[in-house]
Amino acid sequence: MATSALPPVVDTDTWQRQLDELRAREKAATRELDAIAAQRRRLPMVEMPDYTLEGEDGPVRLADVFGDASQLIVYNHMWFPGQEWQCGGCTGFTSQFTRLEVLGNYDARFVVVTQGPIDEALAYKKRVGNAMTWYSTANSPFGDDVGAPLDGGFAVNVFLRDGDTVYRTWHTTGRGTEQLSHTFALIDLLPYGRQEVWQDSPEGWPQGPTYSRWGGSEDIAALYGPARVG
């Protein structure tokens, strides 16, 4: 959306002084995130049942979803039965992850788990050009047990495996998932930010309804799916 609103123009010294003031807050936030991560590493954990999920090659125990790793990040993708296009937010979020092999250096893996039947889930994955490994929990209580029920509910869960025993170590949902996303981090650097009405922006800044600039699942498929141009 075009706008005539612009930040004030100042001399370089004034700009640098105000940038330095902001930088002090940014560094304080970085140190707080470090402290939060340290507390997260000290969380206790909960032993999980021996769930069986469905993968591309058939049934697979949760312990085997880890592959050779001992740590596992699971994104629980929302699923609505009978719908051709699933949650746009989940579809856009998971489309960002195309270079996950680096996690192997940290003894970890990142996968998608959804409540949709595995055949439908894999067809959807292909339709939207998703690069991650998908599993289905349609025949297991796993999704319900980790805060991602059918017909609504997305989440991030982290697990630790010790031999064949799996433990749940962390969970978040809602805006807690933003820390895994590079999209919002980039957008929040822009002068106009996310341009959503809930944000604290200067008078005259372009703003619209929340989610109005988010791409839908069909948009993601057009950009990254097998029918994309280019």
Rank of each mutant, 00 (worst) to 15 (best):
P149C: 11
Y211L: 08
A148H: 12
L186G: 11
F66Q: 15
T133R: 13
N105S: 15
D164S: 13
W85G: 05
V197Y: 13
A37S: 14
Q39G: 11
D13R: 05
A227C: 02
W205E: 08
G58H: 03
F184V: 08
T3N: 09
Q115G: 06
L160P: 00
E120F: 02
T30S: 09
G163S: 02
A222W: 01
G163R: 06
Q16I: 06
T94W: 00
V10G: 11
W170M: 05
F142R: 13
L190G: 03
Y224S: 11
D119H: 08
R127G: 00
V112C: 08
G163N: 08
F142C: 12
R228L: 01
R25V: 02
A121K: 12
I73F: 11
S136T: 10
T133D: 12
L33M: 15
V229E: 13
R61C: 00
I73P: 00
Y51R: 10
F93W: 07
C90Y: 01
V74F: 13
T210M: 08
E56K: 07
R42M: 06
P7A: 04
G88C: 04
E196S: 04
G204A: 06
K126W: 03
D34E: 10
V9S: 07
G174F: 00
G89W: 15
R41E: 13
G82C: 09
W170T: 03
D20E: 07
S95A: 10
G153S: 04
N130L: 05
Q16L: 14
